[in-house]
Amino acid sequence: MRRTLLTTLLFILVMWNFAGSQTASPGYKVIVNEENPVSEISVKELSKIFLKRIRKWDNGEKILPVDLEESSPARESFSREVHQKKVSAIKAYWQKQIFTGRGVPPPEKDSPREVLQYIEEHEGAIGYIPENVSIENFKVKVIRVKAED
């Protein structure tokens, strides 16, 4: 009886997650300060940078990731594509880091313009903005995101 119950529960769990699987289109571009020598980055590295698991660029400079605010569609796409998780799961990850005293999340900016300004002002910064937002007049550059390492 217990085994049947457990098997049923596991089946529901698997089907529940299978039913919810979905993919999202990118809708964002990744940008860094124009002085940054990096021109491409892998999805895995990008995820680790935004979770602060990688903290320095190859040249030793401190990496300063910057996020868009949580309701931004570009943030949702970035989270789905790069972290393979919903924004809410990433927020939960950071709340856990904060309240176990382990770390704090990247700063959140309210608009793509603020992200561009932040990256222009900080040489080690990296962020993302909606694909259709122009970077003209800002000292930043777009870098290519590779699917694999």
Partner: peptide
């Protein structure tokens, strides 16, 4: 004075949103 890193919940035992 440090939270004991014990199990899933000890370090977040009062953080209701988690």
């Amino acid at each position: 004075r440090i939270q004991v890193p014990f199990g899933i919940y000890n370090e977040i035992r009062d953080v209701g949103v988690l």
